[in-house]
């Protein structure tokens, strides 16, 4: 089975109180553990203990946790990763709050990925038995869960090969310079299940180790508009949208959290399949791929990573 999904993301924020207010009141995540300068949050439809960790001091991403289906998967991935010679260590139960042991890997892009197979299940807000379709006390956007992350990378080809060979991701879409160079990835969208992407990479000098954005999952186009309405009420700076991506066909808004980390609300496009031929975007169509409707890109979109 291997990797199942993005389970948690741990990011830096400049002001923990402002961040808490934004992620809880605007995004609608729930505070599950408050350690003062570090807080743990979850969405209403997430059953594990937490999915977002905010830590005061700077901006950017500290690490991402991807859940694997079985404990055995960790050994399989560990063996494969050894052949790549990347930095790797076993992590102990308790290294992460309410999370069992796992594997900590430094990607060729220098990002820290933690693979885990067991986090305490605390249940979703609607429960498991005859659940209602959403909780009555949603706050703000009321995002049900996290979705995916897009990471910066100096060499996309190198890191995507690692993710495909070791994590068993498959490539759903790829941005290439032109049709004569379809083997050169400028950006890549990788999936482990049937989502358009669970992890994506974008190339740029000095981008390794950086975060382009992480996303919250919404269900429908109308949810995206609703999110935009809430953002306007709360003076959240929007970079793009509401619009649709050509790439993944997802519906989207890009915006910034109070520290300047880029976030996205994202509602799925098509169902991805392992045997679906990889979709190719040429660089001259990048604006259409990212912003299908308006076909414009804000200057910051491809230049600012945190």
């Amino acid at each position: 089975m291997g990797v199942v999904r993005l389970g948690y993301i741990h990011v830096r924020v400049t002001d923990i109180e402002e961040a808490k207010k934004h992620y809880c009141q605007t995004v609608g995540f729930r505070l599950v553990k408050d350690e003062g300068k570090r807080v743990f949050l979850k969405g209403w439809d997430e059953w594990e203990h937490h999915s977002v960790v905010l830590e005061e001091g700077g901006i950017g991403v500290i690490k991402l946790g991807y859940k694997v289906a079985k404990a055995d998967d960790l050994e399989v991935i560990e063996a494969k990763a050894k052949t790549f010679g990347v930095a790797m260590e076993r992590m102990s139960a308790g290294d992460n709050l309410e999370t069992a042991d796992g594997l900590r890997i430094t990607l060729p892009s220098t990002h820290t990925i933690e693979l885990y197979h067991n986090m305490t299940v605390t249940g979703s807000d609607v429960g498991r038995i005859n659940p209602d379709v959403f909780p009555r006390d949603l706050v703000g956007i009321g995002a049900p869960r996290i979705d995916h992350a897009l990471l910066g990378c100096d060499n996309v080809n190198e890191t995507e090969k690692f993710l495909i060979d070791v994590f068993d991701f498959y490539q759903v879409e790829r941005l290439v310079p032109d049709l004569e160079h379809q083997d050169v990835s400028l950006a890549t969208w990788l999936s482990s299940g049937n989502r358009g992407h669970d992890l994506a990479l974008i190339q740029g000098e000095g981008y390794s180790g950086k975060l382009h954005h992480f996303a919250f999952q919404l269900q429908e186009w109308s949810d995206i508009l609703h999110a935009g309405q809430i953002m306007s009420m709360d003076d959240v700076p929007i970079e793009m949208g509401p619009t649709q991506h050509g790439i993944t066909r997802g519906k989207t808004i890009y915006y910034y959290d109070p520290s300047g980390n880029r976030n996205e609300v994202f509602a799925d496009g098509y169902t991805a399949q392992r045997d679906r031929p990889t979709i190719i975007w040429t660089a001259d169509h990048l604006a259409k791929g990212i912003n299908y409707v308006n076909r414009t890109l804000a200057e910051a979109f491809t230049t600012v990573l945190t």
């Binding site: 970079e239 980390n261 804000a298 910051a300 600012v304 945190t306």
Partner: peptide, 12 residues
């Protein structure tokens, strides 16, 4: 003027 995140994070 040229700007980005409007949150003091991008430096643009």
């Amino acid at each position: 003027m040229r700007d980005g995140c409007l949150r003091g994070g991008c430096g643009m």
